[in-house]
Design a protein around this nucleic acid. Structure first.
Lengths: 232, 232, 232, 232
DNA sequence: CATGAATGAGCTTTCATTCAT
DNA sequence: GATGAATGAAAGCTCATTCAT
């Protein structure tokens, strides 16, 4: 019973607006749901149907957008990693203050932009599954570890160049900054979720790490140790 | 070929040797195989039959010793954790030198006893699976994290008490020691296994972490910075 | 071959007929297959895949509808038992003739409605598996044995009340009716299926049981002993 | 280190008396254990190891005496059936009293010798597994059902011959005696074991069945209905 | 496009049976 | 003979993936 075409249909809603709009959002919704569950339960323990349900679609739809569970996993990692460092690098190009402040800012803003968001789950995910997804590990290495290393190294180099920091082995020096952050990301999504576990306040944790680090790196006592975590 | 009866047979093997001896060894062999594979591929991706084969037995035999794959996993974690700290604690009770040396020794011997052995795989394992095995996570927390924390805290406190270290927040201070070590354990068993990954030389890594840390913790420049990694 | 558009199509099948319709039918098909095999081979000796194959579906589909083989078993028993007695009771409320006829009718219609159908297999099944499925045994007791007892008892009581039957112990009297029927159900599905076994003609068997019973119960020779089995 | 053969060894216990004695008893002990468990849990649900343990031997020993679980099952049935009827038949040859008393005695002594003993479990067992062990079913038919039928038939025939019983169809008449007994055997080992089930007192059950039956069979009211169950 | 019923390879687990001791 | 460690075929159940509707 097709509607007679010559009659106007003023109440006809925007044809298939809802579905259209959702359709575009589907992949993103699925990726978000998948990230959530992969981080929480691991790759293998997460069922495709759960991801679909959390995204509000049916199981079949998931495979309409991602060829396989593996591909979904890869997409989750890729999606949550791409291009975080260009803007970040630019930011540091313009940075004016002391290198100690720069490092403090770097660690704190890592927490704000990565650590405290779902993106930190990616670190846990990649660490856990790296050996089952070598190409992803390489991708992560290339897109996150190396750029991160470079960014940190540039800060350290700046400190040395300006006479603020002692000369240290650059290759391993960067890990003094990176290790505490990646440990925090792992912790947050593993033992940190267990009821009995020692609770870590991330900002205080980062503050202590940063100040100890700066004390160790600096030529003389770090110029302006912030008054306290509250001042961050 | 009957043995000549008048010759003593000092190497006479235990009567029903082979099978008996194997039986005693089985659990250990299975646990080792399981640790190997769990660390490498994760819990879910490791098939019970693979573990059995690596241990040189059949699938059925595995379940003769462990009631289920879950129980095997728990046993792996327990087996590799139990009682690692008692002797270590005693060692530090007797330590005579500077607290800086004590901390250096602590980190280096962690690498020798844990980090470089399969036991470090446990850290990766627990971090990856903690949310699926909450009781194990609690066990790990109780048997590894807390004792480790205490051991580190005791060292730091000694430094403070003897006027060698600055006063720092103890609760978060311990993580300045622990985080780099746990990061190394994770790295070694995840991204560190990938071909393209930046190779980390663990001893150099630890040396740099230790010296930077000591520089930051110490009241004045750390008394005797070792000449170099080779001197460790 | 497009349908000619100007012809009405009154028998137009339901839009997405096949699959939808199957879905509704699946549980019943599976239950029937399961009943068949459980009765024939017993619960344990029946493989889930066999049931599925007999129902024309794959193994996985079976578990789509029944959470486990145990649940399938329970559903089989429940499905074939539920509400068999309500209509039957009503029928006897309205019965007009002699109580002897009533008892004859009761036993014959048991054969027609239960004994000769697959439902009689349930009796065999429950008897065989009762000790492994206590809750099912209780269910059977509650849904079959007790209502059956009551129905029979009501008939016997009617006979006594109307002066047709002698006074007997009601509690054990009901078994004079029930035992022969349940024995027949067991026999039919066990020894009765064996080639060499003495063949029992159920209707003759029931007739002899009924008449002997009535002769024993009646105050005087049962009024109208039917001429023979053919007259039933 | 073999003992020197020329020395007397006075304390040497009767060489291997214990074991020898047990060895002869083994098969019987195993069969008893198997009967117990097969009746209780069914054939499939009974594990060979359980039988062995209940018999106080190891799993391997069971297979030393019985080639397979199937053979064990067959042996259990055979062992518990063989030659019960010869002595019984002889007993009835000598019976002097009324045929009514004879039938009463028959049913009561069935209970004493079979029904109340483990042997009644055989009936349940065979009924449950007949279709999976056709040869056993045939054996049971041949060794139990037919001889039992004949014995009952001989009693009934005696009653008819002596003018005590009415003429009835012999082929189906025997089931009026057999059905209640076999039902009781089944019940005892299935629903009768469930907590909530209506408890059947076997002796009262048999008394009511016997008297009703006799009332129905007899030419005139059965001569001496016993005063009550206690008088049996 | 979206659905969800259907599939079947694959995994864990059981257990009758074997055989070295 | 007796043992019990070892085996591996077989069974229950899961879940990624497909495809008719």
């Amino acid at each position: 019973m097709p509607p007679s075409p010559d009659l106007p249909c003023p109440t006809d809603p925007a044809p298939h607006a809802r579905r259209e709009r959702r359709k575009d959002a589907r992949p993103r919704e699925l990726l978000e749901a998948a990230l959530e569950l992969f981080v929480q339960k691991g790759f293998a323990a997460t069922k495709a149907e759960e991801v679909a349900k959390l995204a509000g679609v049916s199981k079949g739809t998931l495979f309409l957008y991602f060829a396989s569970k593996d591909e979904l996993f890869k997409a989750v990692v890729r999606e949550n990693i791409i291009g975080r460092f260009t803007e970040w690098n630019a930011e540091f190009e313009r940075f004016q203050g002391s290198t100690a402040d720069m490092l403090r800012y770097c660690m704190r803003s890592w927490w704000e932009r990565i650590g405290s968001t779902k993106a930190s789950g990616i670190t846990k995910l990649v660490m856990s599954e790296a050996r089952n997804f070598p190409e992803l590990a390489a991708f992560f290495e290339h897109e996150v570890v190396l750029p991160g290393n470079e960014l940190i190294q540039r800060i350290l180099q700046r400190g040395v160049d300006r006479g603020e920091f002692q000369l240290i082995d650059m290759k391993y020096g960067v890990y003094t900054v990176m290790a505490p952050l990646m440990f925090l990301a792992m912790w947050k999504h593993s033992l940190g979720t267990c009821v009995g576990a020692a609770k870590i306040d991330p900002e205080e944790y980062i503050a202590v790490q940063a100040e100890t680090l700066l004390a160790g790196l600096s030529v003389r006592p770090p110029p302006s140790p912030p008054a306290g975590p509250a001042a961050l």
